[in-house]
Design a protein around this nucleic acid. Sequence first.
DNA 1: TTGTGAAATATGGTATATCGCACTTGGCCG
DNA 2: CGGCCAAGTGCGATATACCATATTTCACAA
Lengths: 250, 250
Amino acid sequence: MAEALKSPRRPRRAGRQPRSRQSVLGKAGDSGLAALGRASRQTLQAQVYDRLKSAVMTGVLAPGQPVSIRGLASALGTSPIPVREALRHLAAERAVEVQPNGSVAVPEMTRARFEDLRRTRLVIEGFATELAAASMTPATIRRVEGLFAQVDALHRSGDVKKFLAQNQRMRFVIYQAIDSPTLMPIIESLWLQVGPFFNLSMAEPHLRRSLSYDLAAINALKRGDGPEARKWIERDISETGDYILSLLKG
Amino acid sequence: MAEALKSPRRPRRAGRQPRSRQSVLGKAGDSGLAALGRASRQTLQAQVYDRLKSAVMTGVLAPGQPVSIRGLASALGTSPIPVREALRHLAAERAVEVQPNGSVAVPEMTRARFEDLRRTRLVIEGFATELAAASMTPATIRRVEGLFAQVDALHRSGDVKKFLAQNQRMRFVIYQAIDSPTLMPIIESLWLQVGPFFNLSMAEPHLRRSLSYDLAAINALKRGDGPEARKWIERDISETGDYILSLLKG
DNA sequence: TTGTGAAATATGGTATATCGCACTTGGCCG
DNA sequence: CGGCCAAGTGCGATATACCATATTTCACAA
């Protein structure tokens, strides 16, 4: 058994910090060995990606503010490489923009861009909603209705951030029912692009109306009435867009 | 002033190969300093990305065949890092798939996936065509007609590969007329996903029909008739899909 | 001959080092 | 007093090093 010879391949340089592959970012309090089965096979790049994605969606990263790879890396306690790859991934989804000098930033929103996004969302999410009507199982309906109840409660409690997060989850459960590996990433990318601005600017007078449209859409989905559900989702996207656009003016 | 100590940062290790940033991949025979002004500010990652994208589109990379990062890197004469990033970028666009072990491959095509792609393309490219009708300038029309002539000639000459390449260029000129930073990347991603299979399987009996639809669409665009143009593009996508699907059966 | 397991190999992921550019800063000259 | 040049600093891009795991190969024994 020459294994003892092989295990320590090389003398191992002194100042090396192997840094265990998991849980570098996930600060979930691992209770001993339980962690082994949990996030075992998550690459750092994927963890950083998830974090940044959520940071973009929740508006933690302000639009226009440049983000430095090294800064993020040191903030997250990793080397620049996983951060670079996560940022590239987000850039491919248009969640962030690569600046001429190479650093990245959440893109600024202009009226033109927002209107472009809105018309695209109308077409794609409208289509997706109509498709979803044919794929809704009773279990999915229940899931959606449960989420709607939560969203409604969050609306009453006034927690806009959580409201939007759960609202997104609800929508995505609907879209996921289609089981379309083509549509889903497109819709995710669209939400990543408009999401930050919802978080920054959505306010009460509009939320209630949006909720009523969602409810109408859910009821239509329950009946399997795709065109009707589509109509309500389109109305929601369209009027929410009007609202955001009215804020972009000033 | 301890600066003098700092300026020559370190003695510079002997065996270092700085490897000029450009033209590592571009084997265009640089004639001396002329190269300086040419591809100056292209990162390696971007060059690798372009190459791989074209390799995927033209079917050079066979679906399912795993691509090793290191293999590509040494084939291209770079380190693995730019290759990794280019592959991640392509993976985000669904042009390649990250395998469970971390390497990547062009995804296999199944009937289900192809039908999913087709219905999505019908909606998105149909919409895009209709929009384009409102944005076509005389110059764009001329450009498209010029490309159509080339495509037609290539069809007669029987060079399917070049035919498809120019055909794509023609379509993208139309879509680009919309000037939609949202739609364009989506359409590109869709073409990256279906492109390889066109290259592998398109054959004569279908090409002529497809060309006639394209011509009809172009004429409709010229008249500014968006719905009509949309109809022809949709018919093209739909019937080309039928054709490919008939091949996927066997 | 074949199955099993261990070593060799290949490969992905990531840390570190270094290059070269870009932007900043400070000083000098007009 | 203002603008321009030069050093300095920060950062992105990339090469290299090295670990850990997946895969292959090969030897040995049943």
